[in-house]
Nucleic acid binder design. Sequence first.
DNA 1: TGAGATAATCTCAATATATGAGATTATAGC
DNA 2: GCTATAATCTCATATATTGAGATTATCTCA
Lengths: 253, 253
Amino acid sequence: MTPRNASFEKALSLLRFVATGTRDLPTLAALSGLPTATVHRYMKALVEAGFLYREKRGHYHVGLGLAELAAAFDLNMVLPVAGRPYLKALAKATGKTAHLAVLEDDMVTYLAKEAGRDAAVYTLENAQLEAYCSGLGKVLLAGLSPDARQKYISNGPFVALTAHTITEPGPLAQELDRIAQHGYAMDDCEVYDTLKCVAVPICNSRGDVLAAISISGAADDFTPDFIDLTRQRLQQAAQDIARKLGTNNGISQ
Amino acid sequence: MTPRNASFEKALSLLRFVATGTRDLPTLAALSGLPTATVHRYMKALVEAGFLYREKRGHYHVGLGLAELAAAFDLNMVLPVAGRPYLKALAKATGKTAHLAVLEDDMVTYLAKEAGRDAAVYTLENAQLEAYCSGLGKVLLAGLSPDARQKYISNGPFVALTAHTITEPGPLAQELDRIAQHGYAMDDCEVYDTLKCVAVPICNSRGDVLAAISISGAADDFTPDFIDLTRQRLQQAAQDIARKLGTNNGISQ
DNA sequence: TGAGATAATCTCAATATATGAGATTATAGC
DNA sequence: GCTATAATCTCATATATTGAGATTATCTCA
C-alpha cells in the first residue's frame, strides 16, 4: 500500500551502523530496533553480497564489494553536472562569475564556470591554477589534512601576482587556519589588482572538503554587505550541491 | 518460506548495472529482467539513500553516499585478519614461511607473517622493505599502472643485495612485464643468497592488485615441482582471500 | 578443560510488503 | 508544436519478510 522499500532501508541502516564501528549482532539489533533474527538475516545477506566482511563473532567490517562499487563514483564527472544549475543561479543573482573547482596535485582545477553580467574574469573550465593566491584555492588548501597543508606550505615559493598576494609561509598558514575556522575564504585582489572573490567549500557529511565554489568580480562591488550576502548564498548552494550528490545518506531531509 | 532478501539483491543488481555505465530506466529494466515500475521504485529508493545520483533523464551515476560508506573500508585492517588462516595453512602445507603484504609509498609493508618449520626468514609484521628485490615487492610493482611503474623504475637506484638482485632499469621493467603476464613472481636469491620465494597477487574483481602473498624458504628446496605446486596453492589462497573480503559481489559462487 | 554466558542460527505461521500491468504524465529531440 | 520515449503513479494481489522462541555454536574464564 505504501511502497517504500523498507527492506532496503533496513539493510542500509545496518550498513551505516557497521561503518560507524564494528558491532555484534545483539548490539546492532538494539541500535536498529530490529529483532535479532531479522538483523541476522540482513547481515547474512550483506556479507554474501560482499558489502560486509565478518571477521569473527561480533566483528563485522565494511567489505571490499562496497569499496569496488564505490570506485565507480567519479567526483570530477558528477560535480560539474550537479553544480552547474547552482552556479547559474548564483551568477544570475549576484551578476558576477561563479566557479566550481577541486584540488588536484596541489593545483586548483576549474570544473565549471558560469559568467555573470560583468564578465571580468578570464578562466577556462578544466584549466589548472596555483592554489595559494585564489579564494577557491585557499578554501581547498584549508580543507587539507594538517600534514598535507604543512607540506604544501613548506613547498613554496609563492610568487606575488599583485601587491596583495600572500607570499610568506607564516601568514599563509595563518590565513588557512582562519579560513578553516570561518568556513569561507576571500581573495582580496591577490590574483588581479581589480578582482575580488568569495569562496566556500563543498563538504561531505564527515566534513571533508571535496570541492569549492566561488563568486568573483570587480573589487569595487565587494562591499561588506555584498560579501556577507554572497557568502550566505554560496554556503546554501554548497550544501544543496552536496545533498544532491547524495551526501549524508538521506539521514536528514 | 525461503527468506532470501530478494529485495536487497534486486537493489544491488541495479546498483551494479549503474556502476557499469550510466543507463536509462527501460534499459535497466531489460538488463535486470524486472518490470519498469519495479525498477523505478528501486531507483528512487537508491537515489534517496544517496547511493545513486540522477543527473537527468536516463543518466544515473554512483552517488556520494555510497563513496562515503565505502570510506569506512580499511584494507590494511581487514586483509591480515582475513588472510591469516590461509597463511597458516600455506605455512603448514609447505613447511615454509608465508607473508602477506601491500605496497605503500613504493615500499612493501608486511601485514602478516606465518612461520614454517624452517624459520629461515627474518621479517616483522608492519615492517617496510624495498620493493624491487623481493617476490612480494615485484608482484606488487607489476600490479601498478604503467605510469606508476615507469615512475618507480626511473626513480632508482636499485642497490644489489646479492649477486642476483636486479639493479638495472631495463631488466627490471622486463621482469615486471613478465610477472604481470604470468601472474606470479619469483625471488631467486635476490635478497639473501640462500633464500627463494614465490609470490602471487590478491586482486579485486576488476583485476587490480590489492596485495600479495608469498612463500619463502631455503633456496635448495625450491625445485621446479615445488615451485609449481606452491604457486598453485598461493593462487588458490589469493582467490579465497579476495572472495572472503567480499570481492565480485557474490556474482559467482 | 569444562561450565556458564553470550552470540549465531533456524523454523514456520501470520502478515505486512513488494509487486507489476496498465494508464498517465513529464521530458527530450527535431 | 509534434512525436517518441522515459518517468511516474495506482492498487488489487501474490509473496517475501517477519520475529518469537527454541536450538546450536562459540567464546570466556576459572
